[in-house]
């Protein structure tokens, strides 16, 4: 995950995660290796996150691919694959 593009994408993703947060945490500390599971989203709030990610980046993700991701960095990778 090198390059300014990736860093900027991670910042935007952090904002989406923060907007849908269900628990207090230091969102600036969320790093590419942070696991999705550790962020505290449940089966409903994860849908809010996915909706907002697609709106934020203007892409349509394949939900089956998204649920296979384990870390924030993997989501950024998926966004890059989709040309975000």
């Amino acid at each position: 995950m090198d390059g300014e593009g990736t860093a900027g994408m991670l910042d935007r993703l952090r904002d989406v995660l923060r907007d849908n947060a269900v628990e207090e945490r230091d969102w600036d500390a969320v790093a590419p290796e942070t696991t999705i599971e550790s962020l505290g989203f449940d089966s409903l709030t994860i849908l809010d996150v996915l909706y907002d990610v697609e709106e934020e980046f203007g892409i349509a993700l394949e939900p089956k691919q998204v649920v296979k991701t384990r870390t924030v960095g993997e989501i950024v990778g998926l966004l890059q694959q989709h040309g975000a």
């Binding site: 709030t45 994860i46 649920v67």
Partner: peptide, 15 residues
């Protein structure tokens, strides 16, 4: 169950 540690399981089922 409505609540489960895996937040993506509904999406997986539909997929």
């Amino acid at each position: 169950p409505k609540y489960d540690p895996d937040p993506g399981r509904f999406i997986k089922l539909l997929g």
